[in-house]
Design a protein around this nucleic acid. Structure first.
Lengths: 288, 288
DNA sequence: GTTCCGCATGAATCGATAG
DNA sequence: ACTATCGATTCATGCGGAA
């Protein structure tokens, strides 16, 4: 789909409400330029991993990955609001017995591009692919890179608080004065170790290791990542009515998550079959 | 301590048995050159984090971290056996609201130096206290970089097998003891449990995510990692009688772990007070 | 309706084989 | 030598059918 064939609702002059909440089929590098500057509150995406979907996406070679992604991230930087956040779910492949370095290089290159590498969340995959190899174990985690345009960005931490675990109660009982003092010295700022702030509370703030609920909706389609993953980031970085973009929306997981949470969304997907699947699920998820 | 003042047991001509199983006080960059080529089976260390221990180590600025570490890693590359492994526990600091990139740059630089970046294990600090800052949550994980000299290296995967999630869950539920049920028993954990209790049962291989509680003992070394962490890597990458090196041994955690597992060890520590502490613990751990 | 098995299925990786 | 393809390995999970 060329720029000239773009649907009217992607015209930059249109109001957002006229072009959001859709799944677009096409190359995101061709479609992204039609999204207005600084119009997106949150980008959550899981791009095709290097060399891993050769049959479907043509297979980006690990050595070419950074060059392939940088023009896209340049567009994402443009369309993101100054207070917005970009969550990039990615993991390096094993190449010739080594972890490839394209993710490291991508982070460095995106910083040159103007992004701030604010944080790296860890997604612990509970049911990772099985297998046994002579010199490695199963890969059970992926990176969720948090990138921003500014040091100050929108973040709604209270929206993702989690119930206090049993460990907290146990821990509290065991806390001695020396424990408290030691931790106070270890934590230099902010919330710190003021136990009174969380004693008796039912909810606590999570960490940067994603500990999502084990419950997973009965999805019949294969999703790139579980629904809970985009939901968590959408709750954390947006409010109702905000706009969430996924330039590699696949079967629509991010769009569904946004819809469920009352956020506007815009999904882009290259493969028509995924677009159809996404639209189907999108339609069926109306009452979720 | 200059090279001229090196103790006799660090003379390259001496047999390993004459110079191992000791904690040496001094700058590792000055002491490492006296260790013979390709004599170490495993290196496990947690170097001082950038800028985090200004008072004790002089505070390596994040921007200088790579230049500071590369001469050391060059020595480590030399003393490591071809089949050996280097486990580097490290985590980037937040500088000016961003994760600093020195760890990424260090990986790239060490590859230029000849290291292979085989794997990145995640140490998930599962019992760290909740906490929050305006723009981030509590940091609950650290990197354990696995670096090698060759694609083929010694690895004893059977030594770290853990009970299956299903089996453990079922059995523990039938025991109906709250404490046991709460105990982490899934595949991804396996620390802090007496695995011998499960011998003969169904065991599976772990993943590259290590669930491990931070140590709550009264260690004075500020960067001490929990004993289970070096123990796990020592079991995975060495056999009894092998030699384990920690060039930043601190209060001796790696040395204690090696001793407990019947491995030879060599610890290096700059600060005399830590050396004394390490030797004390080393002595007291004789019957552990 | 529950609970309990059995079974298919993965954003995987290695080594061998083939071109 | 270097790349492309295939078989073997492995386990948490969700599902369907059975008790």
């Amino acid at each position: 789909m060329s720029a000239l064939q773009l649907p009217l609702y992607l015209n930059g002059d249109a109001k957002r409400s006229e072009w959001s909440d859709r799944i677009l089929q096409g190359d995101c590098l061709a479609l992204l330029p039609n999204i207005p500057d600084e119009s997106v509150d949150l980008i959550v995406t899981s791009p095709p991993y290097a060399d891993s979907r050769k049959k479907t996406y043509g297979g980006i070679h690990p050595d070419d990955y950074v060059d392939w992604f940088l023009p896209i991230s340049a567009q994402l930087l443009r369309v993101l609001k100054p207070s917005g956040t970009f969550i990039l779910n990615i993991k390096e492949k094993v190449v010739n017995g080594e972890r490839h370095t394209y993710v490291l290089e991508l982070i460095l290159a995106m910083r040159q591009q103007g992004w701030l590498w604010t944080e790296e969340f860890i997604w612990h995959k509970k049911n990772c692919y099985p297998g046994k190899w002579p010199n490695r174990f199963r890969d059970a985690w992926e990176r969720c890179l948090q990138l921003n345009k500014q040091k100050q960005f929108a973040m709604y931490q209270d929206a993702v608080m989690v119930p206090t675990g049993d460990w907290a109660k146990t821990r509290l009982r065991k806390l001695s004065q020396t424990d408290l003092r030691r931790d106070e010295s270890r934590v230099s700022s902010g919330f710190g170790k003021n136990v009174s702030n969380w004693v008796g509370r039912e909810l606590v703030y999570p960490t940067n290791v994603l500990h999502l609920a084990t419950e997973s909706s009965n999805r019949k389609h294969s999703a790139a990542f579980p629904l809970e993953l985009p939901k968590w980031f959408i709750k954390l970085f947006t409010q109702e009515g905000d706009l969430v973009l996924d330039p590699f929306v696949g079967s629509g997981t991010t769009a569904i998550a946004a819809r469920m949470l009352g956020r506007h969304y815009l999904g882009i997907e290259l493969l028509p079959e995924y677009v159809e699947l996404a639209k189907l699920v999108q339609f069926n998820s109306g009452n979720m």
